[in-house]
Simulated assay, not measured.
Amino acid sequence: MLTRQTQLEVDDYRRIFLQDVPLIDVRAPIEFQQGAFPSAINLPLLNNSERQAVGICYKQHGQQAAVALGHRLVNGSLREQRMQAWIVQCARQPQGMIYCFRGGLRSQLVQQWLREAGEDYPRVCGGYKALRSFLLGTLEFCAALPMIIVGGNTGCGKTLLIKELAAGIDLEGTANHRGSSFGRTLLKQHSQIDFENRLAVLMLKKQQEGCHRWVLEDESRIIGSNNLPLTLFNGMQQSPLVVIDDPFEVRLARLQTEYLDQMRVAFEQAYGELEGWQKYDEYLHHGLFAIRRRLGLERFQQMTQRLKWALPLQQASGNSDAHQQWLVPLLQHYYDPMYRYQLEKKAQRIIFRGYYAEVKEFLMTYSQNSGE
Rank of each mutant, 00 (worst) to 15 (best):
S239Q: 03
S181D: 07
G118N: 11
R14L: 14
L114C: 10
V242A: 14
V67N: 05
D120P: 05
Q278N: 15
H285C: 13
L46V: 03
A91T: 05
V215W: 02
R79S: 06
W326H: 06
E358S: 12
Q111G: 15
D12C: 13
V359C: 13
D194Q: 09
L145Y: 04
I56Q: 08
T159R: 00
T257N: 05
G179R: 08
E31F: 07
C125N: 12
G104Q: 05
T304F: 04
F289C: 08
D194Y: 10
D120M: 12
R92D: 06
F134Y: 15
E372T: 09
A167F: 05
H212L: 09
E172M: 11
R251E: 00
H71Y: 13
S49L: 12
T159H: 02
R4K: 12
R15S: 14
Q368L: 13
Q52W: 00
F32T: 00
M147E: 08
E50P: 09
M1Q: 01
P38E: 09
F195G: 11
Q269S: 14
R132P: 07
E344P: 00
G62I: 11
P22D: 07
E249S: 06
D194H: 07
M83V: 03
Y121R: 09
A266V: 07
A316Y: 01
I351S: 11
V67I: 15
A266F: 04
K59N: 04
R306N: 10
A117R: 13
V328M: 05
K279L: 15
L46K: 04
L161Q: 04
G157C: 03
I244G: 02
Q5G: 05
K279Q: 15
D25V: 10
E31P: 01
I24V: 02
R254L: 06
Q208E: 13
G62M: 07
E217W: 02
D25R: 08
Y128D: 05
F17Q: 06
N75T: 10
F134H: 13
V26R: 03
Q262F: 12
Q52M: 03
A316Q: 13
Q84W: 00
T3R: 10
N75A: 14
I98K: 00
G276I: 13
R254P: 00
I350R: 05
K163Y: 02
A36W: 06
R340D: 13
Q112M: 14
F352G: 00
P329W: 09
N153V: 01
E298K: 15
Q7N: 13
R15P: 04
E164F: 01
W86A: 02
Q19A: 14
P146F: 07
I291D: 08
S77F: 03
I222P: 00
N42I: 02
